[in-house]
Design a protein around this nucleic acid. Structure first.
Length: 577
RNA sequence: CGGGAUGUGGCGCAGCUUGGUCAGCGCACCGGUUUCGGGAACCGGGGGCCGCGGGUUCGAAUCCCGCCAUCCCGACCA
């Protein structure tokens, strides 16, 4: 491959686009790899397309090596399969739907569980046909409320999605482990630093689930690590260690007048002032905060639910949603229509609505909480005695310094990350929905169990740019660079001809070459463009051409080396391995 | 969906408060001359229903109303 910049569709920008915020977005636009074409949609320009294709090839290669077979489905799908799986409603507003001329419902697929399941249903009939690992590389659509970060979150993006079909749990576990290993290999080849964290499966359904997160300030996921062990989890998946049940030692609950204390802070202050229960050391963590939310069950009517968390913690709506999936929750604030819910003075005792409590609200624990009367709170309200939650829920915020749920010894640290891959064991949710069975060796039907494995390819390009750049521009890893060598002709005394000739020599040896053969462009411009574009090594054919020398540069280290022109191909071949 | 901001040649912006030589600047682009290893200089040019619709006015990029779009924060989000 030899690309000539004199004819390449490329325009680098000296100034940053006004709408670009994150580094990857700024650089990819400035360097002429992509440009915005629609809200949440980007055009891949020649250089960007080369990178995207190389990323895709790495993924394909590793998927094939892991036994995957590539197929391709339409992106435009009819409604019926998604009705069968329930996702037409469960996926919510994020599903990009449309109608054809007859008014029939269609969607632009966000993922393809249904279609893969149907394909396997159609084409398999015996246990001998399994296991299967199928994948595709395809454009996905989501009606994102707010696309952001350039390529990081679009409404249309390229994704590799893969699905495994196995006869039993052991097969699923094996496929899952194989994918996990393949993903580590993929991200290693792509040069993407990442952490594997325990995750929740969300609207997809299923059980075991892990995310591959690229640590980054601009990331939208928050995850924890442990100071003592190797535990790592998305905050949505952090499980709170429940204290053991303890015997009830507290006296009977007592109601106190606590006027003007609708918040935890005001309550604690007043409780200490008045020495409620004979104490003046009340802390927010002694109180039980009860937050009312509206739970939206897909396809059913909304439900009003109270969530109880220790008063020193906020309810984390992301964690709450994850715990309620596929239902979602929003804060309830229409207390006018529910006079039986006393805002600011809610307690779990005798609440007229369903009550879900944080695991820390263990049987035997005593709390200072609302008395369900305006201006009154109750002390010594004991879980298991004065109230019994309708269930436990992981809704309280996770904080740095919390005890690690895995080892119990270390504490948690918190970081942000970009989700670049997600693997999980779906189980039989979809094979059940579509009643997929194959005949087992004993002649009885067996229902296959599935795994689902995704990598955001568009996003991967952005993450690579996010992790590999400096103040001058991009620095692509060898495996995905748009070219292996950037030859810069810095001069007009035959430098362009010499550069093209060197390029031709390298191309014959299988090297990908970009030549800056633009006439009448100053050397300075070519150097800055070269650094912005970020091809890992460049050859400057310049003023020492007459002596037969050129300069080899390393974009990452900045190293420069004057070499005889004739030696350059050999040196480059050596370094490319 | 809430909060904030912004819409003026391809890109980045000024002009709006105080309506009238305001349609302008930088980059990019075209022609010419010079320059040629770190975003060159000079000369000459082309390109904009000032987001859309309505209103006020003799006159609107500028004031008023409505709408749309984009970006940022939050909500939302495999």
């Amino acid at each position: 491959m030899l690309l000539r910049m004199s004819t390449l569709l490329l325009k680098t920008l000296r100034e940053e686009p006004a709408d670009a915020e994150v580094p990857s977005h700024r650089l990819l636009v400035r360097a002429g790899f992509v440009r915005r074409a629609a809200p949440g949609g980007y055009t891949w320009l020649p250089l960007g397309k080369l990178v995207l294709d190389r990323v895709t090839e790495v993924v394909r290669d590793e998927m094939a090596a892991a036994g995957g077979q590539e197929v391709s489905f339409p992106a435009l799908l009819p409604r019926e399969p998604f009705d069968t799986s329930g996702r037409w409603t469960e996926y919510g507003d994020l599903l990009l739907t449309l109608q054809d001329r007859r008014g029939a419902d269609y969607l632009l697929a966000p993922t393809h569980e249904e279609m893969f399941t149907l394909l396997v249903q159609d084409m398999t009939s015996s246990y001998r046909d399994l296991p299967l690992l199928l994948f595709q590389v395809q454009t996905k659509f989501r009606d994102e409320a707010r696309p952001r970060g350039g390529l990081l979150r679009g409404r249309e993006f390229l994704m590799k999605d893969a699905y495994s079909f196995d006869l039993d749990d052991a097969g699923l576990t094996s496929a899952y482990d194989r994918m996990r290993t393949a993903y580590q290999q993929i991200f290693r080849r792509l040069g993407v630093e990442h952490t594997i964290v325990a995750a929740v499966s969300g609207a997809m359904g299923g059980s075991a689930s892990e995310e591959f997160l690229a640590p980054a300030e601009v990331g939208e996921d928050t995850f924890v690590g442990c100071t003592a062990c190797d535990y790592a989890a998305n905050t949505e998946a952090v499980v709170t260690p429940a204290p053991p049940a303890r015997p009830v030692t507290a006296p009977a609950a007592a109601v106190h007048d606590t006027p003007g204390t609708p918040t935890i802070a005001t309550l604690v202050e007043l409780a200490n002032e008045r020495r409620l229960g004979g104490r003046d050391d009340w802390a927010a963590s002694d109180t039980l905060k009860n937050v009312v939310v509206v739970v939206h069950h897909p396809g059913r009517t909304d439900e009003i639910v109270a969530i109880g968390v220790p008063g020193d913690r906020e309810v984390d709506l992301k964690r709450l949603d994850a715990a309620l999936a596929p239902a979602t929750a929003t804060l309830f604030d229409d207390f006018a229509v529910r006079p039986d819910l006393v805002k600011g003075y809610l307690g779990p005792q005798g609440l007229p609505i369903r009550y879900l409590a944080d695991p820390r609200v263990a049987p035997g624990t005593a709390w200072l909480t609302g008395a369900n009367q305006a201006g009154r709170h109750a002390t010594d309200v004991v879980a298991g005695r004065d109230f019994v939650p309708d269930g436990a829920i992981e809704a309280a915020e996770v904080r740095a310094g919390d005890t690690c749920p895995a080892c119990g010894g270390g504490t948690l640290t918190i970081r942000r990350g970009i989700e670049i891959g997600h693997i999980f064991q779906l189980g039989r949710r979809y094979t059940d929905a579509f009643r997929v069975d194959v005949l087992g060796a004993d002649g009885k039907p067996v229902r296959p169990t599935m795994g689902s494995y995704g990598i955001g390819l568009t996003r991967a390009v952005a993450v690579i740019a996010e992790q590999h750049h400096d103040e001058r521009g991009l620095i692509w890893p060898d495996a995905v660079a748009p070219a292996d060598v950037h030859i810069v002709a810095a001069g007009r005394d035959g430098q362009i001809e010499a550069a093209l000739s060197l390029g031709a020599t390298l191309v014959r040896a299988g090297v990908r070459v970009l030549v800056d053969d633009r006439p009448n462009v100053s050397a300075g411009v070519k150097f800055t463009d070269s650094e912005l574009i970020g091809i890992p090594r460049s050859v400057v054919v310049g003023r020492r051409l007459m002596e037969g020398y050129a300069e080899l540069r390393n974009r990452r280290t900045g190293d420069r080396q004057e070499l005889p022109l004739v030696d350059i191909p050999g040196v480059i071949m050596g370094r490319l391995g």
